[in-house]
Computed example of a mutant assay.
Amino acid sequence: MRSQAEKGRLFRDLHERPGILLLPNPWDAGTAKLLQSLGFEALATTSLGMSNALGRADGEGSVSRAELLENCRAIAGATDLPVNADLENGYADEPRAAATILRDAAEAGVVGGSLEDWSGEKIYDFNHAVERVAAGVEMARSLAVPFTFTARAENLIRGRDDLDDTLRRLQAFEKAGADVLYAPGLRDLQTMKLVASSVGRPINVVMSAADPALSVDQMAAVGVKRISVGGALSRLALAAFMKGAREMKDGGFTWVREAMPTRDLKPVFRS
């Protein structure tokens, strides 16, 4: 089993090598182990997937800070892979208070994490958002293990369709020292290329908001470095669950043929 410091260094290296880093999003220990068994090189938590597993509507306040950190601990402890954490807005508005979640997430075993510029009600004012990123960078650099800090600009998924302001924020976040830049809501190659060419740090694209017809090669060609899927795998699992449950309600069981065999699960979960 790799040490946390080894995971941290590996995660940094995965961002620096040529090519795309695929970052799937498990929501518990079991899905983390399954993704590792497929050969993925790193993982990321998902707030939506966790909310779904808890039977709660996703959104600010649906998952407590303690629950989020415990989910980080469960996923990081289940796998030998580096884990990046969706840390919401840090559960605080004040920059240094928000940044403490990076320390607590690292103590839970993750080696990367993101902070949003969304309070739960509004996008933070520009200067305040930059101060929050600067505090996050300071905290990340103070940790005992290498920690990759991602700064998120939430405009495009929060009803504020302002690409110019999004680019301004990402550029300021880069200047403040963020390791990775992330603007959820990028959908097409032209916009991805514009964002990637406007900054000098790795860009994360989430496929739950992007055109699903796009390929890894196409996105790599326009400068995307990292691809995640947010809660999309969780929603896919729930769609299969509901399909089988509806058939069962109607008296049928053909869905059992599509279930993953127990013999395939046992070797993964024994590891």
Rank of each mutant, 00 (worst) to 15 (best):
D80G: 12
N127H: 10
E88V: 05
E116G: 08
T45P: 00
E116A: 06
I101P: 00
K122G: 09
L143F: 09
N89K: 15
D80Y: 11
R158Y: 05
R56T: 11
L38K: 14
D165F: 10
L43N: 02
G39R: 09
A144Q: 12
S37T: 08
L54H: 13
I75P: 00
R141I: 11
D161Y: 12
L163Q: 08
I157G: 05
D125A: 13
F149W: 02
N52Q: 15
H128P: 09
R160C: 09
S119C: 08
L35P: 00
K122Y: 14
S51I: 12
L87T: 01
F149V: 07
R132N: 09
A135Q: 02
E70W: 06
E154F: 02
A135E: 02
E41M: 11
F149K: 02
L68Y: 03
A97H: 12
T148P: 01
E94Y: 08
Y124V: 05
Y91T: 03
E121D: 08
A108S: 12
S142I: 11
D86F: 06
N155W: 03
A44P: 01
A135D: 04
N52L: 13
G113F: 01
A108P: 07
V130Y: 00
L34N: 04
F40D: 05
N127C: 07
R56S: 14
D93A: 15
A108F: 02
E154Q: 06
C72A: 13
S114R: 08
L156I: 09
G55E: 13
L87K: 07
E60H: 12
T100L: 15
L115Q: 02
L102G: 05
D104I: 05
D161F: 05
E41Q: 15
D164K: 09
D93G: 15
D86H: 12
S47A: 11
A153N: 04
D58N: 14
A135H: 00
L115T: 04
N127V: 09
V111R: 00
T31I: 13
R73I: 06
L156Y: 04
M50L: 15
R160Y: 14
L43H: 07
F147Y: 13
G49A: 13
V145F: 12
